[in-house]
């Protein structure tokens, strides 16, 4: 089956679970930013949970289908329609050959996930079909979709009953105010104690340039650094360090001004101090934060982070149990 791209949307890309094990070579994991919504879309259709899907950022694409199939749309509140007729989110939809799927504006959240029965079939590169656009790797020709693109799909699983739906309690929240949990380190000692306290107490707003590489925040007070002589190999700016690895989720604050949280298409290292790292359980939420979302960074212990990771796994197990069979 072929899917023709009539309109590509703002930045629509093929994504899956991502490619692990190459970050030390500078190749980031990529993959769906909101893994929970991405996996739920596949589970609705009876696909492999990590079958490649389309991540549709802020403005969805327009697509026509060459054959009858089933699709599911999860994540951001972007109302799907088939040949102009509005359809629900978070459920199994039948599509007839020749029909055009379109999306409304993202009224909440930031990224819709469109799964198609059988998954999107693009070549596997280093263990993943995910698009890493900055490195022109994976996905369809290593880039976001363009008008006229044709996407092939894999072998479809047996059709699911139309109307099977994700319980609302299991959907990733899309509210405009969020708390993001952070484990402090490794360079928080570079920041004066009162300044660090203020960083953790103030609301920060998602800046418009935020993307899959990183999320920038504005609106809070710049950091005050502890005075020091720059060590050998570090730049002169007080936020500079001797080059180090950047974990996914790490929060760098160049010149102490605007924090940047690295996400799945990030660069793997550099010379900015990192005040802390967002816990893995809270990384999905970034995928659903449009510009102007208000965030507070909350300091948690490693034990609390591991507990949150276990709870996230349980939530995913709950979705699997609710949608299988």
């Amino acid at each position: 089956m072929a899917i023709e791209v009539k309109k590509p949307g703002l930045a629509t890309s093929v994504q899956d679970q991502g490619r692990q094990g190459n970050y030390h070579l500078g190749i980031p994991p990529s993959g769906a930013m909101d893994q929970m919504s991405f996996r739920a879309a596949n589970l609705l259709l009876g696909n492999e949970e990590t079958a490649a899907a389309l991540e549709c950022a802020l403005l969805g694409p327009e697509l026509t289908f060459s054959e009858d199939t089933q699709v599911a749309v999860t994540g951001a509140r972007m109302q799907p329609s088939l040949d102009g007729e509005q359809k629900p989110l978070d459920t199994v939809l039948d599509v007839r050959a020749g029909e055009t799927l379109a999306f409304g504006f993202a009224s909440a959240g930031a990224r819709g996930y469109l799964a198609v029965s059988g998954g999107i079939d693009v070549p596997v590169v280093l263990g993943s079909r995910s698009t890493y656009a900055l490195g022109a790797l994976g996905g369809l020709h290593g880039r976001t979709l363009q008008p006229g693109d044709l996407l092939e799909t894999g072998k479809p699983p047996p059709a699911r009953p139309v109307g099977k739906t994700i319980p609302s309690s299991m959907q990733v929240p899309v509210s405009r105010e969020r708390e993001i949990r952070v484990v402090l380190g490794l360079y928080d000692a570079r920041v004066e104690v009162q300044s660090l306290k203020r960083f953790l107490s103030e609301p920060w707003q998602v800046a418009s340039e935020s993307d899959r590489i990183g999320y920038r925040f504005k609106g809070g007070t710049p950091l005050n650094f502890v005075p020091r002589e720059p060590p050998f190999g570090a730049g002169d700016d007080p936020s500079n360090i001797v080059d180090a690895c950047y974990p996914i989720g790490s929060i760098q604050v160049p010149s102490g001004q605007q924090p940047i949280v690295l996400h799945r298409d990030a660069v793997s290292g550099g010379g900015y101090m990192m005040i802390g790292t967002v816990i893995s359980a809270d990384m999905d939420v970034f995928g659903q934060m449009p510009p102007n979302t208000s965030v507070r960074f909350v300091d948690v212990s490693l034990e609390q982070a591991l507990q949150a990771r276990a709870e996230r796994r349980q939530r995913l197990d709950g979705i699997r149990a609710a949608l299988r069979g």
């Binding site: 703002l10 930045a11 950022a57 802020l58 418009s208 340039e209 935020s210 993307d211 510009p291």
Partner: peptide
């Protein structure tokens, strides 16, 4: 409207 470093 600028978003995700793109001017639309």
């Amino acid at each position: 409207i600028e978003v995700m470093k793109m001017f639309n």
